[in-house]
């Protein structure tokens, strides 16, 4: 049996310095980009167009406010956005009617690239948006944000407009608060802290610098998006980080503190499903990148237990993290966008 206790500790100082440097140069607070007029000038200088994509499935309670805020502040008042699109998975509520009534372009995911079929999942909507939307930069914002503000978009696109080398900008929330005992760890969600951060620490330690790897708000250059695989379900954010990091390193990423995000809380049961999907995505990448070998074929059934009195039963759900190929490999896309 190997003697684990005598294994030498890794040299932490180099990694810590690397992460600290990146945090210092590539982490922003949205207030650094308070002047939207200046961002519009930067956009004009860069000669790029920007699209906003909001993926939806039954989001009638929050979608209207998001569209009003973004359209008013970032289209009517300042021409930062060139289009606002809602890409929907088949809502049965008033999501699309409300979004349309406030001036968003609305699309059903299943009607985009119909020859590619339709998969259910947020990642599918994000992938189809690359085909449907026109922008050189696409900003994705989830539809369930209650405290929406124009900074959710302007803050995210700013690093792309101001620094050519940045390709992918993630949002994070809830600044570390100074407490009597020092700094509070910056809060990722429960899945981030219990699953994703430990996995990154083990296999991609530089990516632990990303405060909230699962946040649904990010802005990305088209040439990057079209080259990425898209898991259609829970793993899309994790896969993007790993794939782009492996290809281009940490320096193409930036992250922006957007202060606070109020949204509906998910149950532990739902977070379990999310973790199951993310883990599939993660393990596939470990194997694909030669970090581990010989993984068995995954069982796609996620098994959870529930009890009623003294009766116990399993709740099984099939969760397959199917992945869409890079959009650039789709002929229809190349034709539409002249790639």
């Amino acid at each position: 049996m190997p003697n684990y206790l005598t294994k030498p500790l890794p040299d932490m100082s180099k990694m810590e310095k690397r992460i600290e440097t990146w945090l210092g140069t590539n982490t922003y607070h949205h207030s650094e980009f308070w002047s939207i007029a200046d961002l519009v000038k930067a956009k004009e200088r860069a000669g790029v167009s920007i699209s906003l994509c909001i993926p939806t499935l039954n989001e009638e309670k929050t979608i209207g406010k998001e569209i009003i805020m973004f359209k008013s502040e970032l289209m009517d008042r300042y021409p930062l956005l060139d289009e606002i699109a809602v890409v929907d998975s088949g809502s049965t509520d008033e999501t699309l009617a409300i979004a349309s009534s406030f001036g968003a372009d609305t699309y059903l995911s299943g009607e985009i690239l119909p020859d590619q079929g339709f998969r259910t999942g947020k990642g599918e909507n994000l992938w189809k948006a690359i085909y449907q939307l026109k922008g050189d930069i696409i900003c994705y914002v989830d539809a369930d944000i209650k405290n929406i503000h124009s900074k959710f978009v302007s803050g995210l696109v700013a690093p792309l407009l101001l620094r050519d080398e940045i390709q992918y900008v993630k949002a994070f929330y809830d600044r570390p608060l100074a407490l009597s005992g020092g700094l509070r760890p910056s809060g990722g969600g429960r899945v981030t802290e219990i699953l994703v951060r430990p996995l990154f620490s083990l296999f991609f330690p530089e990516l632990t610098a990303v405060m909230q790897p699962l946040s649904g708000e990010y802005a990305v250059r088209r040439e990057v998006l079209e080259s990425l695989h898209f898991p259609v379900g829970y793993g899309v954010e994790t896969s993007h980080l790993i794939d782009l990091y492996v290809k281009s390193g940490l320096d193409v990423f930036a992250q922006v503190d957007l202060d606070r995000r109020v949204h509906r809380n998910q149950t532990t049961i739902d977070l379990g499903k999310m973790s199951f999907g993310i883990l599939q995505t993660f393990l596939k990448r470990l194997e694909h990148n030669g970090i581990v070998r010989g993984l068995p074929e995954f069982d796609s059934v996620f098994r959870q237990l529930q009890a009623e009195g003294k009766r116990y039963e399993t709740r099984n759900r099939v969760i397959v993290e199917e992945e869409r190929p890079p959009m650039i490999t789709i002929p229809g896309y190349r034709e539409r966008h002249g790639r």
Partner: peptide, 15 residues
Amino acid sequence: GVRELVLANVVMAAE
């Protein structure tokens, strides 16, 4: 044509 501008200000003022 200015309704959304007003509505965005309503949201901001109200919150």
